[in-house]
């Protein structure tokens, strides 16, 4: 039996080296194609149609995109997405600050670290609910505090001037925790000899941080950047839980706008929703391309 196999060096034997990685990759690739690549092209295809999900698809070419350009809600969402993008980045310095603060050996530091990490572990929906109550007029802690300080009450989530900032503040809480963890692991890998050497040369405080510690944290910063940017563009759960896009659509972001048009009780405009998804995808592609280019160039230099 064994002889028979070894005597016939078949296709498999000859190409084993080349085929093995693909075989190992196959299950993942298959999933990726079915659940990621194909839906992307399906979305693009649907975005050229007028379709309610039930009847026939009607080809309208760029009709959905033309309508999108003329849609106030689209610009509101876009503007909010940009605010999200910029302010969400605050979680990186905030995370770094917390990480530096917690990077010491005191009794019980593990407990403190866990407590700071806690908001990232709980679900976004829970974070959203907690902040909704926090902001709630009449009984919310924040409203009470504001009333005590200024004598006036502001219903953050009902005021179009503050609503987006209120939601972002809620989002920063878990995101800061995430960045903190990234930086804590980064700080563990810092070369103590370099720090020692810098100390001997008289560097301390801000200078030591800027010229010695931060450069070594660059990989952590890069990852934090990637997850924060993508996280800010995907912001959906908090908007959905805290305001459902309200008041009168002023806290919408693209992902929620897409959901509302395509899948919510009042929408079912699959084509229009798909068009929004395509735009969101293109915006994300800009950032993803930037990140990948950077990553590749780093790998080449290494």
């Amino acid at each position: 039996m064994t002889q028979a196999v070894s005597s016939a060096p078949g296709f498999w034997k000859k190409n084993q080296q080349k085929l093995a990685p693909w075989l190992f990759l196959a299950p993942g690739l298959l999933m990726f194609v079915i659940y990621v690549l194909v839906p992307i092209f399906q979305s693009i295809w649907i975005s050229f149609h007028d379709w309610d999900g039930l009847g026939e698809k009607v080809w309208i070419g760029l009709g959905n995109y033309v309508e999108l350009i003329d849609d106030e809600d689209f610009y509101t969402s876009l503007k909010n997405n940009i605010i999200w993008l910029v302010l969400y980045l605050l979680s990186i310095p905030a995370g770094l600050a917390v990480a530096l603060f917690l990077n010491q050996t005191v009794t019980g530091i593990r407990l403190y670290k866990s407590l700071f990490f806690f908001p990232f572990v709980i679900s976004q929906v829970v974070v959203g609910l907690m902040f909704t109550w926090f902001y709630a007029p009449d009984f919310g802690l924040f409203s009470q505090l504001l009333k005590w300080l200024t004598g006036e009450e502001v219903a953050v989530l009902a005021d179009e001037r503050y609503v987006t900032y209120g939601i972002i503040a809620a989002g920063l809480w878990p995101q800061t925790a995430y960045c903190m963890i990234l930086y804590l692991t980064g700080l563990n890998n810092i070369n103590p000899e370099q720090v020692e050497a810098a100390r001997m040369d008289g560097a301390k405080g801000a200078k030591l941080l800027w010229f010695v510690v931060l450069p070594q944290l660059a990989p952590a910063t890069f990852i934090a950047m990637v997850v924060t940017v993508i996280g800010s563009l995907r912001s959906f759960d908090l908007v959905s839980v805290m305001t459902a896009g309200g008041p009168y659509g002023t806290s919408q972001v693209l992902s929620y706008f897409m959901y509302e048009q395509a899948l919510s009780e009042y929408g079912y405009r699959m084509g229009y929703g798909a068009a929004i998804a395509v735009i969101l995808f293109l915006i994300m592609m800009i950032f993803i391309t930037l990140f990948i280019v950077r990553m590749l160039s780093q790998e080449r230099n290494a």
Binding site: A158, E160, G246, P247, Y248, G249, E260, S264, E265, Y266, G267, Y268, R269
Partner: peptide
């Protein structure tokens, strides 16, 4: 119809503010 209702009620809310 659903999409008219959605836009309408959003506007009513805006008007009330």
């Amino acid at each position: 119809p659903a999409d008219m209702a959605k836009a309408g009620m959003e506007s009513f809310q805006e008007f009330m503010v």
